[in-house]
Amino acid sequence: MKIVRSSTFTADRAWGALDIANMNGITTRLHWTDQPYKWHVNDGEEVFAVLHGRVEMRYREAGVEHSTVLETGDVFHASVGTEHVAHPIGEARILVIESEGSV
């Protein structure tokens, strides 16, 4: 049993994470960041939920770049092959659910 208070979680570096669970190779991690990540494609699907803050999510479909701002409570689903990058607007806390070992 575990209770995580996401509103008080911080890390010593951008995209630092707290491992919450690993369920048959699917990881759930809480990330804290105030810096962009990097353009990447995950090994599988990814669910990205903004728990605190705002995040500009940039993604490419058929070579065309798109952007949307995710608010607290919003969820982004990256299907297999979706190239994307997260740019927090200030500090953000993000719950990420993905295949173990994914980028």
Rank of each mutant, 00 (worst) to 15 (best):
L18V: 01
E56D: 12
M23A: 14
A49K: 13
T72E: 15
D74F: 10
R54N: 11
P88Y: 07
L95E: 13
R93D: 04
L51E: 08
H66M: 14
N42Y: 05
E71F: 03
E71M: 09
G16D: 00
D19T: 11
P36T: 05
R13C: 05
A78W: 02
L70N: 01
H66I: 14
D43W: 10
V4M: 06
K38M: 09
K38G: 07
L95C: 10
R93I: 03
G16N: 01
H52D: 10
V4F: 01
I94S: 04
R93Y: 05
Y37G: 12
L70G: 02
D74K: 07
N42D: 14
N22L: 07
W15E: 01
R58F: 10
Y37L: 11
L18D: 03
T82H: 13
W32T: 04
V64P: 02
V4T: 01
V47S: 10
L30N: 00
T82R: 14
G16R: 02
A21R: 04
V80K: 15
S7Y: 06
A49R: 13
E56G: 02
I26F: 08
I3Y: 08
H52Y: 14
R60K: 15
T82C: 15
V50C: 06
K2S: 07
I3Q: 10
I3P: 04
G81I: 08
